[in-house]
Design a protein around this nucleic acid. Structure first.
Lengths: 230, 230
DNA sequence: ACCTGAACACCGTTCAAGT
DNA sequence: ACCTGAACACCGTTCAAGT
């Protein structure tokens, strides 16, 4: 029983020079999320990168969900601030929606986080930005909520699917194209009697432009909105 | 060292009478999901309910994601089968969309699972059902994909947000109404200069009808679609 | 006030061993 | 062929103890 030989090593990781901050933690989280996907963010990996212990983070942030929402909000805040000078309300809505699409494309984890952050700050930012434009569009008072909700939910829906695609491609170790090719082949093998429509779309799936299709959906809703005033 | 006294207890849980089946596992998973939320489904809780060990389940199902998607698909398959005899394509789309809304309302975990199941069987079922109607609506060939995607993504977006609301209310131990009241109060306290629109919506949030608003969104898209043919 | 890091109570998944 | 259940490699979170 040589219990006494627990010789303390010289500390391998000395105390940080600067002290931890909420913002620093969030920035490091975003880095991890961007580089390794949602699975890459762990209180252990994060604290390692910050040269501290897992417990330290809890002094600044309540829990993982809050961390995720805060990271998401940092991205959304920038995105929603897109200035669109002198454009019509409809053009502004299109521009903001596209900015959202691009942000989620660049940070797929934002898509899945938004899907779980109903009513929280990040969604409220988008709601507000769209809402002001919907008002400027002349949508009647009592239709404004449903109209803005439609735009928001559509954007969040696309974002969620994009996040899922990226995540799936990531776990498969494949890129987006070969992932889509896989889905396309699967679709073309479906039972022709039960899935005629999906089968006929298999080809387009390969070549389609996600971004253009997203915008087409926004335009469909905008088209419906303009019908509201007639 | 009394190593030899490892007297084997009489087995507390005897072998099941019937053997495990994929369908039985999925049904039990749905039960657990419905009664205890997404967090209630664990290979341990599930195997306990099935009177077996965690490892047994892996003989029938590859992993937790497959289990979740299969459970989700069981609900979607029923839902999408809603018969709507002799109705117009637009009316059928509305009916199918509403059926989806109701299914997610009854099983909130379906909303969050769908958001992660891009391109998989459950989403394909919805895509197919909507696609056939979009075709019947007379949407030009080259606009069909974007049109169906818009409908699908909108439905999935609403479903995801509903799931998040339900989940949040569940963790708070509150019901939906008092949860919405909480969000409403938070919104009415936002900075009037930065969030005029959201603040003005705080009141409506309490009294609004989710289902009606959902349908209004579908109608906006349908309105946009009808504009496509003129 | 802020940080440390071991410990707790879980997870999903694997796998040798059983029937 | 199918099941068992201990073991593995993780998680998020807590908390006594340090500075």
């Amino acid at each position: 029983m040589s219990r006494y030989r627990m010789n303390k090593q010289t500390r391998s990781s000395p105390r940080r020079e600067t002290s931890l901050s909420r913002q620093g933690i969030i920035d490091a989280a975003i880095d991890l999320l961007d580089s390794h996907g949602p699975g890459g963010l762990t209180f252990r990996t994060l604290s390692e990168r910050l040269a501290t212990g897992p417990g330290a983070i809890y002094w600044h942030i309540a829990n993982k969900n809050e961390l995720l929402v805060a990271a998401c909000d940092a991205i959304i805040a920038r995105t929603v601030d897109t200035r669109v000078d002198g454009a019509s309300p409809a053009a502004t809505i299109r521009a903001v929606a596209l900015a959202m699409f691009d942000a989620i494309d660049a940070h797929p984890w934002v898509g899945s986080t938004l899907a779980r952050a109903a009513g929280e700050l990040p969604t409220v930012r988008i709601l507000e930005r769209l809402g002001q434009q919907v008002r400027a569009l002349g949508v009647p008072e009592d239709a404004q909520w449903a109209t803005v909700s439609a735009l928001l939910n559509y954007i969040l829906g696309v974002g969620g699917q994009n996040a899922a695609n990226a995540q799936f491609a990531h776990t498969l170790g494949a890129d987006r194209d070969s992932f889509l090719a896989k889905v396309s082949t699967a679709w073309s093998r479906l039972d022709p009697a039960a899935y005629p429509f999906t089968r006929s779309m298999a080809g387009q799936l390969r070549s389609h432009d996600d971004r253009a299709d997203f915008l087409a959906g926004i335009d469909l809703i905008l088209g419906g909105i303009s019908g509201l005033r007639t």
